[in-house]
């Protein structure tokens, strides 16, 4: 039973950063931006979260700085891809590599360590205990006691759905992706919708990064996003950007993440278990491609 609860909780905390980044990507997906920079935004977010939490002494400052760092990356993306109309894919690759370089550099310059910075002075984002619910057997250990960011992610899932499908903003956002010319001719700038989507993506990826370094673990490690941004991209594409579908896929990836950790307990090589989420991505992509192929022929 304990192993089971551990697996479920592993799944939830594994899913949270992917979900948050993917929800950010959902906005750019609908706005018609081919955005692959979630990986870099998340990594920068994770670094700045530790920076804020350690030096300013509060996890709130950590989250604030994480959003700031991630947004800075989003602004560079906006300047190049929207403003100067550079290729989105190349811009995204450049930003991801830049994010890896700058965080590693700053880690060594500011904290004077290589590889990992771990310190009791990093204040983590707290877990939230919900009274009454925490007393329910089994379920209580899952529903209650999760990290604050897990609950925020659930809230943001619903918020994203609402924004995209129920509001004027959402109607225009999707229009920008479906047919920008039509949106422009109706008097709304599609470029601005792309800017908004990237800003939202920046905020969400900042949250994802903050959870990585102040929730999932309590440290910063070089390249600690470890491909989660790419997995979030896969999640978006697999469900054609639907926020609820993204949540489901994120849980699936989270599960393989948790499974990897569990297998490690049974002496499976760490390199192999670390491979599991990516293997899951490939399998998911295979099924997606088969489905897409059938659609195309039709």
């Amino acid at each position: 039973m304990k192993a089971f609860i551990g697996l479920i909780n592993g799944m939830i905390s594994g899913a949270t950063p992917i979900l948050l980044a993917a929800l950010g990507g959902v906005f750019t997906y609908y706005a018609g931006v081919f955005n692959i920079a979630m990986e870099g935004m998340m990594l920068v977010g994770a670094f700045f979260a530790v920076l804020g939490s350690y030096f300013l002494g509060s996890w709130l400052w950590g989250i604030g700085l994480a959003i700031f760092g991630s947004l800075a990356l989003a602004l560079i993306f906006i300047l190049f891809a929207v403003g100067l109309k550079t290729d989105e894919f190349v811009t995204g690759i450049a930003l991801n590599l830049f994010a890896l370089g700058i965080t590693t550099y700053l880690l060594r310059q500011i904290f004077k360590v290589k590889g990992v910075f771990s310190n009791p002075g990093i204040i983590p984002i707290p877990a939230i205990k919900i009274p009454l619910i925490e007393n329910i057997p089994v379920l209580g250990k899952i529903l209650s006691g999760q990290n604050l960011m897990v609950y925020i992610a659930i809230l943001i899932t619903w918020l994203s759905y609402f924004l995209i499908f129920r509001t004027r903003f959402g109607l225009r956002l999707r229009a920008a992706g479906y047919n920008a010319a039509r949106l422009d001719s109706s008097g709304v700038s599609s470029a601005w919708m792309r800017v908004w989507s990237l800003l939202i993506c920046g905020v969400f990826c900042g949250l994802a990064g903050a959870f990585l370094s102040l929730g999932y673990v309590n440290l910063f490690a070089e390249n600690m996003s470890a491909g989660r941004g790419w997995i979030s991209l896969a999640a978006i594409i697999l469900v054609n950007g639907h926020p609820l579908g993204v949540a489901l896929i994120s849980l699936l990836f989270g599960f393989s993440d948790g499974l990897g950790l569990l297998l490690q307990g049974y002496q499976a090589p760490a390199q192999f278990t670390a491979m599991v989420p990516y293997l899951a991505t490939l399998i998911a992509l295979y099924f997606y491609a088969v489905r897409a192929k059938e659609k195309r022929i039709r």
Binding site: R166, T167, R168, F169, G170, L171, R172, R174, A175, Y178, N179, A181, R182, L183, S185, S186, G187, V188
Partner: peptide, 26 residues
Amino acid sequence: IVLIPQYTVWENIVLGVEPVRSFGRL
């Protein structure tokens, strides 16, 4: 003709001058 194929007729027509309620809801 430049329209959004995924949208319904009325969504295409009101796009850009949509009536809204509180919280920016359509």
